[in-house]
Amino acid sequence: MSGIRVSLRGKSFPDASGNGTRQVLGELGFVAERGEFVAILGPSGCGKTTLLNLIAGLDAAYEGEIALDAAAGNAAPDIGYVFQNPRLLPWRTVFENVCLVLNAPAGATALVEKFLAEAGLTEFRDAYPEKLSLGQRRRVAIVRAFAIAPDLLLMDEPFVSLDGPTAERLRAMLLEIWNACPTTVLFVTHDLDEAIALADRVLVLSESPASIVADVPIAVPRQERMAPAVLEEFRKRLRQPEKV
């Protein structure tokens, strides 16, 4: 498990015309403690995915610093990434997709079987991803990310475009696995209620170029958060900064 400290001065992309640049992320800094579940909430297009890609090391062209404190005896922290589109390899079965990312596949397959069972995917173990529904593919992607016992788990709107009850079930499953295998989570979403339901703390991003406009701890046990009064209270506090 690994904490993370982000202090960005900015991140720009070449703009569409090719001769200028478009700043996506502004001055942006936060710290996530070990084992903390942090939701990053922001309007679509504000650079949330870009932020996760920088943290995942997919893009090294930025100004500032991103530091993960490696867990003891582990040189480089392992990062699990649940993409918005599940990105399962269509030419590998569910089981092969999960085993592929393991560092020591030999001993860990039993654990993969256990995870798949917990996610209700045992009967799809040998199916190819195209045979699965979107919700099932998302579950496989979550299992894959947890299978490497990540020091840091990045999740990019993993439940977007699912119907309400399915998204609800997947959120419950996520919390269950996370409780069993605790790790630091950065969870990007544009859904206020989802952030309130899942996170220990919610960071609210502004429109692009994004910076943090609010940092709201959700200091209420998870099972009590869906009470209308509590929900309304946090909604208000999270919406507030967007008006400013």
């Binding site: 995942a56 997919l58 392992d78 990062i79 990434y81 993409f83 990105r87 390899l89 990312v101 990045l154």
Partner: peptide, 10 residues
Amino acid sequence: DYLEMAHSFR
């Protein structure tokens, strides 16, 4: 997308 997946899972 798949190459990024491969990269982030090292």
